[in-house]
Amino acid sequence: AATLQTHPGPYSGNLTPTPHEDVTHYNNFYEFGMGKADPATQSQAFHPLPWTLEITGLVRRPVRLDVEQLLRSPAIEERIYRMRCVEAWSMVIPWDGIPLATLLKDADPDPRATHVAFESIVRPSEMPGQNEALSGIQWPYVEGLRLDEAMNPLTLLALGIYGETLPNQNGAPLRLVVPWKYGFKGIKSIQRISLLDHEPPTTWNRLAPDEYGFYANVNPQVDHPRWSQATERVIGAHSLFGATRQPTLMFNGYGEQVADLYRGMDLRKNF
């Protein structure tokens, strides 16, 4: 990983980051295998650069971004965010990235656009998990947000962690970070962003619609069918009897910034 030019951004609060080793060796990235350690060991053959990010669909100015140039952008800032996985564990990650809104504004969304669809890459020769036929996952991995969620100042397009370019296992060369949603919304290795006038399909919702909704907002009151979401295991203890659980916060602690987006919605139905 190369060093990134970055500066402290807002919303970082008073959080202590999870050790670098855990952030880079405890990952869900099924393109590189299903085990938590697989992405770190099986992503070595992946070539994140050169890379072109396309912003297309209902935009007035379609954009094709050279990610190598983007990596030199002075707009890159550090955001230390809580990361809550739907599997009931959590980390704190110091991301380096650009607010997604900045890039979307450059593409000038058409007034008809209501949603944003994200598409990851398909490269089975470099991503062994994409050859795992049993999983039933359709590649590419796809995710989506409502346009107002995508434009929220918290929503980040991350290019790095810990002041360095993203390791392959963390979603190189660029990935989405939506800190008030479960981690699987944070689609990795993004190739295409499309603005749409309808809600796009999302990978986990397609696989198990009763377990993973389109919104996937962190919510301690709405349980996963197989486990409670009220608390979370804190990653980083490394000792069997010293591990801790903590209460999960509504919207992962970002309610002040995002609760308005869901005013009047039934969050049990729109989970």
Partner: peptide, 18 residues
């Protein structure tokens, strides 16, 4: 498994692995 768990060999989420 208990020995590994006590010596940091079960990774970042030892309880879950255990």
């Amino acid at each position: 498994l208990v020995w590994q768990g006590q010596h940091g060999a079960l990774g970042a989420d030892p309880v879950n692995v255990f």
